[in-house]
């Protein structure tokens, strides 16, 4: 059973502490939303957890040997980069890099086909990834992370720039992956989708973890006012939780 355990994780850039003393344990089955305003340290937290940044404290992923870590955790960076005009299938297949040395096996092919189907991209397999729209490229890169079939998935703003239908379907996929027994940590700015699909939210502000719990317990009027500077409407409806930011509030 793979858990993601961070204890007292801190990151310093020059003299400034951009992430301080984060201690959390994420368990299989949890779809955890990482929320917080711009510059709160969301990306830094995920990169430090993966060991891609020099850090203090301990992360159960960062201490793994690089090869083992690549099989344990899939990382979807915010920067959506596809450098060459390769096919969609090739991009998704890169997710299998940690799984074979020279030649991909049947299970690698199956994982790629599976990931393509899951993201609704089966018909795109042979298309050139760079000729797709920005949102389609984003889905191709999500499929790449899915094809890695790692027990832990960290995704940095994966749904930014997607149309509403694909935002919903992508969050549904993340929730389902958690339901299948994986650890999912996804950063996002859409608190409404976070409230609907995440089982747990981590609220970051100024590099500190200020709230951790089910969406209803994290998205309180006080937290919204103090961390995001907004007032919002939130209600439980027959269609699930509904969250809508209403206006900017001044804090004195």
């Amino acid at each position: 059973m793979t858990v993601l355990e961070l204890s007292d994780l801190s990151v310093r850039r020059q003299a400034r502490e951009v992430l301080s003393g984060i201690s959390v344990t994420l368990r299989p089955g949890e779809c955890v939303g990482l929320v917080g305003p711009n510059g709160a340290g969301k990306t830094t937290l995920m990169r430090a957890a993966l060991g891609l940044l020099p850090h203090e404290g301990r992360s159960s992923l960062a201490i793994l040997p690089q090869h083992t870590r690549a099989r344990t955790a899939a990382w979807l960076p915010q920067m959506r980069e596809i450098a060459w005009p390769v096919s969609v299938e090739t991009v998704v297949g890169l997710g299998r890099t940690p799984h074979f040395r020279t030649r991909p096996a049947a299970q690698d092919r199956a994982a790629v086909a599976d990931a393509l189907a899951r993201m609704g991209l089966a018909a795109y397999a042979e298309r050139t990834a760079l000729r797709l729209s920005g949102g389609e490229q984003a889905r191709v890169l999500i499929a790449r992370a899915l094809a890695q079939e790692a027990p832990v998935l960290l995704a940095d703003e994966p749904i930014a720039g997607l149309d509403p239908a694909h935002q919903l379907s992508t969050m549904r996929i993340f929730a389902d992956l958690a339901g299948e027994g994986r650890v999912v940590l996804v950063s996002l700015h859409d608190l409404g989708l976070a409230a609907r699909f995440c089982t747990r939210l981590l609220l970051l502000s100024g590099g500190r973890l200020v709230a951790d719990g089910p969406p209803g317990a994290v998205l309180t009027p006080q937290n919204l006012a103090h961390v995001f500077g907004v007032r919002a409407f939130m209600a439980e409806t027959p269609d699930g939780p509904v969250f809508q930011p209403l206006e900017v509030v001044e804090i004195d």
């Binding site: 990169r47 891609l52 979807l76 920067m79 980069e81 890169l141 890695q148």
Partner: peptide
């Protein structure tokens, strides 16, 4: 092809 961060994580 996916950038340095993604490559390192792979």
């Amino acid at each position: 092809t996916l950038g340095e961060d993604a490559a390192e994580a792979l």
